[in-house]
Design a protein around this nucleic acid. Sequence first.
DNA 1: CTGAAAGCGCTAACAT
DNA 2: ATGTTAGCGCTTTCAG
Lengths: 337, 337
Amino acid sequence: MEKTKKPSSKDVAREAGVSQATVSYVLNNVPGVKIKAETREAVLAAARKLNYYPNEIARSMRLKRAMSIGIVSDKDVSNFRFMRILEGIKDALLPKNYSITLCFDKQNGPIAQAESVRYYCSNRIEGIIFVYSELRDEDYLYLHEKKIPFVVINSHQKHSLSNQVKNDMEQALITALQSLKHAGKKEVAFLGLRDRNPLDRRFRGYLKALEACALPMEERLYMRVPGKAEQIETFLETYYTVHKSLPMAILCESSGIGFRLLRFAARKGVSVPEQLSVIAIGTSRFSSLSYPSLSTIENPLYEMGYTGCQLLFNLIEGKPTQSIITLEWRFVPRESS
Amino acid sequence: MEKTKKPSSKDVAREAGVSQATVSYVLNNVPGVKIKAETREAVLAAARKLNYYPNEIARSMRLKRAMSIGIVSDKDVSNFRFMRILEGIKDALLPKNYSITLCFDKQNGPIAQAESVRYYCSNRIEGIIFVYSELRDEDYLYLHEKKIPFVVINSHQKHSLSNQVKNDMEQALITALQSLKHAGKKEVAFLGLRDRNPLDRRFRGYLKALEACALPMEERLYMRVPGKAEQIETFLETYYTVHKSLPMAILCESSGIGFRLLRFAARKGVSVPEQLSVIAIGTSRFSSLSYPSLSTIENPLYEMGYTGCQLLFNLIEGKPTQSIITLEWRFVPRESS
DNA sequence: CTGAAAGCGCTAACAT
DNA sequence: ATGTTAGCGCTTTCAG
C-alpha cells in the first residue's frame, strides 16, 4: 500500500503562488475576508489540480472541535426505525460537515465508563445522542454534572427529564377517529394484545380520543387479546362466529396486528374499507405494500432524528434551547380507511 | 455550557514534576523506554488526580492516523445481522482503540463522491468496510487505483473480486444432513419458496449435499412453494391432506419457514423431532426461543465482521494478506432435529 | 532514565 | 487584499 503523500494546503498555496492563509480563506469562504476573484480562481484551480482535500484532523485540532457526534443505540431497535432516525440526524448534520461515530455502550456498569462518554472525554465527539436506549436517573445526573451535551430520542422513556425528544400521538389519534366518523363509522373498536405493558399507552390514547370525538365507549369494543400476536387470528375467528360480523371500524395497536386483520377480512370476504375500516398505530415498511394499503398513525421518526440533532447542536454551541421537544405523530390515511 | 478547559499532558507533566515526554512514555507504555517505577507512579497519580484524558485528535494528528474506520451498509440489512457483524468488527477494533464512523453512501452516482471515499480523502477514516452493500465493478477499480484500503462483507455478491469476506455453506449442509441420516432419517425434503432468486443457492446447496450424503434425490422431496411465505401453511395443509403424512426430515430455506413448519407440526400433532426433523438455513434471533427450539445452519456473522476488520487492518498496515477469505456456515443442532 | 524541542496541517490574529 | 506567524496537544528524535 504505497502511499503517495497527500497534498497539504501549503502545497496548494505554492502551486497557486499565494500564502497558506489565502488558501484557507478561499476554501472556507471566511466571512468578512474579501479575496480578489482572480486569486480565488487560482487557488481553486490549484486545489483541483493537486486533488486537494483538507485534512479534517488538523482542522479539528486547530478548531478544537471534534466535528463528529456519537450515536448510541439499543441493539434491539428495528433497523427500519433506527435507520429512519439516523437519516434525520444525518440530514441535520450535513450542512455542518459533522460525521457520526457509533458508540457501543454496555448496558451495565456506570455510564462514566461507557464508550460514548470516554469518546467525549478524549475529544473524539462533541456530544451524544441516545437512540431508544434506556438511561437511568443517575446517568442523567452524571451527564449534566459533567456538562456533556446529550439528547435522548426515545418514545418509551417513563419520566420526562431534560434533553429529550418525545412524541405525542393524541392529536393524530383524534384526527384519525374523526376521519372515521366523517366516513360514517358510528363506532371504533380497538384491537390489541392485553399482556403487553409498553404499548398500553396506545390503548389509553384510544380511550381519550374516543371521548374527544364523542364516539361510543363500550366494553365490547375493546378487543384486547391475551397471549401473543399469533392468537389474534383465533380471537377474530371466534369473535366473527359469535357476532356474525366485525365492528365498522377497528383501530389496531400495531401495524403487525393491522396486517393480520386485513388478511382475516379478505378471507371472510369482508370488504375494506366499505364494511370495515382499519387503521393501525405504528410505522411499518409494508404499510403501502399490502392490498388494500394500510392506513397508519406514524411516529415522526425522521423528524425525531432531525430535531434531536438540532437540539444537540444548540447545546453544543451553548445556544438557549428548549430542553424537551415533543413531536406529533401523523395520521397517514391509505386505502384501508 | 461553561467549559472548564480540559487538562493536557502538559498539565499532567507539571503536576507530576516531570516533562511532557515522560507522560507520553508512561501513558503509552512505549516499548523500549524504561521508566523508574517511582516516576511512573507519579505520572499515573497526576493523571488520575486531574482526570486526564489524552486528546485523541492531537494524537491522530501527530501519528497521521485517523484512528477510525468507515462502515457503509445497505439500509435494508436486517438490524440483527448488521449488529452482529458490527459486534465482530468492534471486537477486532477494540485492542487498537479505533472508532467506527458511519458513512451514508448514496447508491447512485460515482463512488468517488461517496461519503466514505470523501471521508478517507480528508483523513477522517483509514479504511472502509462495505457491509452487504452492492459494489459495482468500476467501484472496485476506483478503490484499488486510489489505493484505498477496503473490504467487502457480503454473501450475495455475484463475482469473486478481491478484498472480500465470503461464506460457504456446503460443508455445514453436509454435516446437517449427515446428522439426520445418523438419526435414522432415510430422506430429507426441502421446503422453500420457488419465486425467490437470491436464495436459490440454498436449494442448489441442498441438492449437492444430498448427493454427498448419498441420500435419495427425488422430485417429491422438493417442496418449493410458489408465491409468498404466507402460502407455506396452505401448501403444507394440502400436502398433508394428500399424503396423510410429512417427510421424515425437512430442510427449510429460511428460519421463518422453519417456524411456520414447527407450528404446523404442533397443530397436527406431529412430534418433532421423532416423526419429523426440522432444520432451517439462516440465523435468527428466535431459534432458541421456539418450542421445540429450531436447529439451524447459521451464517458466521460475527466472524465475518471480525475477520473482515482484521483483513482491513492488514491492508491499512501494508501487511501481506489473503485477499479473499471464505468462512464456513455452522450447523447448530437444537431440539428440532 | 528523562528533558528539550521540533513539527504534524490547519486557522486566525496581527501586520502590511 | 493578502502575507507572516503563533500555536492547538501530542509524539519522538536527539541530548544529556
